[in-house]
Design a protein around this nucleic acid. Structure first.
Lengths: 340, 340
DNA sequence: ACGGCTTGCTCACACGTGTGCGCAAGCCTT
DNA sequence: AAGGCTTGCGCACACGTGTGAGCAAGCCGT
């Protein structure tokens, strides 16, 4: 109902085909008279014609739209990545739609299905992990997608991430050196994700490098939520022998940790140094020494879009993208310090 | 290509029509034999059939998808609203796609166009304001949409928001009472938005109520960004006569403000009470007295979806929604305190 | 006069789905 | 035996777009 090419065609007095050719910029290619083209364009503009991407996508099997499925859009880390991805995609002539799975594999799967059936040309996925068979299915069908932040050892595909083991190790070594000799507590994230496991592995590596014994009491496995940080810190507070420092696997855990620490002050907790991944604005103002692994969010988003578009364009629409080797982008993190 | 109804039909040995009827749950209505239906369903499941929402949307002029365009998804306020909206929409059988305009009316307009041409059944919009002619266009065409958080006096339509004037006034009166007699500085947001203007009006009303003279030096107009908070605070720091308290129009401005205050300490700045809109987790841990107007984010998101779906279902697909009176939902804010 | 070339456009099909109408076969009723 | 009802399903069109093939008219050269 909202105005077709047919309406424009009738108004101008040409066939619908001609309108289609003109409006998709192929006027010259099909030798449409300049006069005719101008009249068509004017009419379309005047009546506010907007092509149906549904019909267009149905016909061409291409929508110039990328889907972005992240695990938690309320995490500024992912919000910034999403923002960067949008900008990059727009520059390349692609629109973007965002979805947030809330770390729920079922929702993630549903989102992917939805975006696919809605004609997205490709997907960028920060997977919740756990159950990820649907990702294998994507790969087997040759559907273009790029993993973001979280990867899977047994699933070879394009991805953009950081070296979590190394970053975590560097960060924790730095933390250890600050309070030496140090018992560093570990508030971990989802162990179903490569980031969760990698950061734990980096923790172990740092302990080994500094010849510190691994103490299971100091390792709390949780998920990437504020609540998890609260609960983990709660557990630490109950220890007979408190840690000398705390590592939080991401910024949400850090929130919970700091909140709990603030609520139950007293030494050594008050002055205990804390480290975490992912910079957020508040770190500049919290009155505590922080060491943070800053991931290049803008670069991650932009690179993911770049890889995805490359993959999307590597074969005619509607056909599987096979053959081309997969690209693995590992970006560098930067250690930063906050607080006095 | 990704498997149509025809494939299923051929495999089972029936016509495509029958497959369509069965898979859209109208088997009984069209008296398809139970046996046949089961075979079709089994075959579809086995081969992983996924209907093309493109074709379906093209045919039915309905996509069961709602678009959500917010001004800044990296603001937890909007992220939480988006999250709530998704949940509510899912419960009602609608999918959701999110877009973030970054407070840019042009991007907002592009997003709206894109979502519409992609077949979204309706939109929830937290508009950037400034240029909003495209919203009038939506209304004139009878396209279903609900404004969120920000409204326009000259545009009557469904909306969900809070009474910014009252909330701001209550908040600032409370702030004044704390440090009486008080010179309260105002770090404002985008004046192109009703929230920006409303919160300023509330500020003026609070001053009047407490019989405090309006001092233009204390009023900084900016936008809803961290940078704006930084710059505004910078300006305050340069005043010969410092304020006794600071009001920030939203959480991002608050970030910038606190950051700047932390970088340049000394009395009276160190102990100066600060107020703002929108609760974020970090407020529990910042070592400063805060009074915050907490908006019911989940309720806002859910209510907006409810209104939108009502509007969407109020007329057959593809036809303008006119006639029904518009609903204005004004939700209550809650004043909360943080810090010692 | 006639064939070939250029210009400027149209015809008709395809994409995958939903749906009103209709039809054949079997059974029941009278 | 004829008419009508029920059961179970298919035909064919529509949605709005892109596109390969083709067609009429004019012009040119011989």
């Amino acid at each position: 109902m909202p105005l077709n090419m047919k309406d424009i065609a009738d108004a101008v007095g040409v066939s619908r085909t001609t309108v289609s050719r003109v409006l998709s910029g192929k006027a010259e290619q099909f030798r449409i008279a300049r006069k005719t083209a101008e009249r068509i364009i004017a009419e379309a503009k005047a009546r506010g014609y907007r092509p149906s991407e549904l019909a267009r996508g149905l016909r061409t099997a291409r929508s110039n739209t990328l889907g972005l499925v992240v695990s938690d859009i309320s995490n500024p880390f992912f919000a910034n990545i999403a923002w960067a991805a949008e900008q990059a995609a727009e520059k390349a002539g692609f629109a973007t739609v965002i979805g947030s799975s809330g770390e729920d594999p079922a929702r993630e799967k549903a989102y992917i299905e939805n975006l696919r059936s809605r004609g997205a040309d490709g997907l960028i996925i920060a997977s919740a992990g756990g159950d990820y068979e649907h990702l294998f299915a994507l790969k087997n069908e040759g559907y273009p997608f790029v993993l973001l932040d979280r990867v899977f050892e047994d699933l070879d595909c394009d991805f953009v991430a950081v070296d979590n083991v190394r970053a975590s190790r560097d960060l924790i070594e730095k933390l250890i050196d600050r309070v030496q000799p140090a018992r560093v507590a570990f508030l971990g994230g989802r162990m179903e994700t490569s980031t969760g496991r990698g950061r734990l592995e980096g923790y172990r590596a740092a302990l080994r490098a500094r010849k510190i014994e691994f103490d299971n009491d100091l390792v709390i496995r949780g998920d990437y939520s504020v609540e998890s940080g609260r609960m983990g810190t709660e557990a630490l507070l109950a220890l007979k022998r408190p840690p000398d420092a705390i590592f939080c696997a991401n910024n949400k855990i850090l929130f919970g940790c700091l909140e709990r620490l603030a609520a139950a002050p007293g030494e050594p907790w008050t002055s205990m140094p804390v480290a975490s991944f992912d910079v957020t604005p508040f770190m500049q103002i919290v009155g505590r020494r922080l060491i943070v692994a800053s991931q290049p969010e803008r670069a991650i988003g932009a690179r993911a879009v770049e890889l995805l578009i490359k993959r999307v364009l590597s074969a005619p629409p509607g056909t599987p993208r096979m053959g081309k080797p997969f690209e693995h982008a590992l970006l560098d993190v930067e250690l930063r310090q906050f607080g006095m």
